[in-house]
Design a protein around this nucleic acid. Structure first.
Lengths: 275, 275
DNA sequence: CGAACGGTTGACAAGGGTCAAGTTCGGTGG
DNA sequence: CCACCGAACTTGACCCTTGTCAACCGTTCG
């Protein structure tokens, strides 16, 4: 407990990282971590990025932060909180497509038109930092360096989605759930994968939507994982502690964990162990 | 039959579009269609792109055209034939992740490192045109215009994947299959969605891998769709003719068909009808 | 205190996997 | 030309995983 990472602390105490809504934002932005995952950021790069940011907005659970009508010309950096992009099917059901965690950049997928019918909604309360797409474009035009960063970040999201697809197609419900937990663990605790706790502020209904199963079955599978001694849930706090990482990896076939912590530019994070 | 599109003709008679292997390539490249889907290509743009192309290679069914060891520094434009990217799981099974059709650009997802453990293999014979990533990088550096094109193309692939994910999560087997057929129809017959034929040169085993179901069940679902009068299979030729487009749309919940034929820069294609 | 929400559990049914046998078709060799 | 073979497709019987429906419990909040 004493060695909680910054990311884990942010995850547990988001309010500590909030700032007043109306002030200009010059603080430390978490998405730097993700960006510097893919390209080396100099001090000047960070200054340039910071100059792009508009005033951060505090948002509530359930708020729609992006749609064809809302923030269409903006990218959003998710400083705190969880969000999802979803699509309304013809029968009115909302299908969740994608999940955004603190540090993720929202809106890359419809950067140039396309997918006008997705909307992004907050799953928890949080804080978002808007960017004008146009200004980022100008910045990319001036400095090719950022093109690399943006492309790599977009491709990284794409790879995560490919992983998820792979997971959904080829495993049964329990393995899907295990995989999901491991993915979140890797993303949330980056760059400190040795931390074995994570907070999962989602209802089992939402988890089910993400994994293509019912809330009832999510419950059954969670109980199953717990009864096998792979993890422990802290009831009522949404906390999960992984007890047997390797067994969970084996069950899930999560052989791409490395992808989430691979960082050619930053300090190499310690990892529990692997193959 | 008389009004077959260029794309449909290419699909039926790939050999007609082949060129001798060792000659330099200055012909008409099909990926222009896809790129011009996302950004306007001037004559000069096309010339610049053509200059990047290296000698095309004819490849056989089953050939691995890209892996961590093969063509790692190249992007490949798929001029003819179908390919898939797949991942080897710990039990040795090959899980298919993604499908590439004529005109697609292979390798964007691992443009900057990442996903070293995917490989791309041909599902049919075909023709590929290699590009050096590095040269495309230089081109993007010189002309920001191409950055837009590449980003948009990458995001388009990402959106298709999101669609597939959505499909897999939220529908039963029959609907998944219907959706898959409609996706292929839209991509193959672009920009002529009024053509109701498509060729599907895949075994039911491969289709099953893509959709997360067994070959046996693929067979059952296909029969089911046929018995409901939604489509007809031409036995032994892998041809499918869609008989009732709207009913198929309704069954599949394929409400994003527009995304595949939306072309802000080119001529607007006629579409059958929608919602 | 009661309503609302999310989680848990059980009984039952259905969708889809598994296994196995049979069929069709294209290729190969005598 | 025919016999044989393998690959892919088809079909049926059976069973397991997961969805459905419902009741029940615990917490939170007005």
């Amino acid at each position: 407990m004493a060695s909680l990472s910054v990311a884990a602390d942010r995850q547990k105490n988001p309010e500590r990282h909030f700032v007043a809504e109306s002030q200009p934002w010059h603080g430390y932005a978490i998405y730097y971590e993700i960006l510097s995952h893919h390209t080396s950021l100099t001090i000047r790069d960070r200054e340039a990025l910071t100059a792009l940011q508009e005033a951060p907005k505090r948002v509530k659970k359930g708020d729609v932060i992006k749609s064809h009508a809302r923030n269409a010309k903006y990218l959003l950096a998710l400083q705190d909180g969880w969000a999802c992009s979803r699509r309304i099917t013809q029968n009115g059901h909302r299908q969740i497509i994608d999940l955004y965690l603190p540090g993720d950049i929202v809106g890359l997928r419809d950067y140039h038109g396309g997918s006008h019918f997705d909307e992004v909604a907050m799953l928890t309360e949080g804080l978002i930092i808007p960017f004008q797409k146009q200004k980022l474009d100008e910045m990319m035009r001036k400095d090719h360096h950022f093109v690399q960063g943006v492309l790599a970040t977009a491709m990284h999201q794409s790879n995560i989605m490919a992983d998820r697809l792979n997971n959904l197609i080829s495993h049964d419900a329990t393995a899907r759930l295990a995989y999901f937990i491991l993915e979140l663990h890797a993303r949330l605790n980056f760059p400190h994968p040795e931390v074995m706790n994570l907070t999962l502020p989602l209802s089992q209904q939402v988890v089910g939507d993400l994994l293509g199963m019912t809330n009832v079955h999510v419950c059954r599978c969670l109980s199953h994982l717990e009864s096998k001694g792979l993890l422990i849930r802290d009831k009522n706090s949404h906390d999960i502690r992984i007890l047997n990482y390797t067994a969970l990896l084996a069950l899930a076939g999560f052989n791409t964990a490395y992808a989430y912590s691979l960082n050619p530019y930053g300090p190499v994070p310690k990892r529990p162990q692997s193959h």
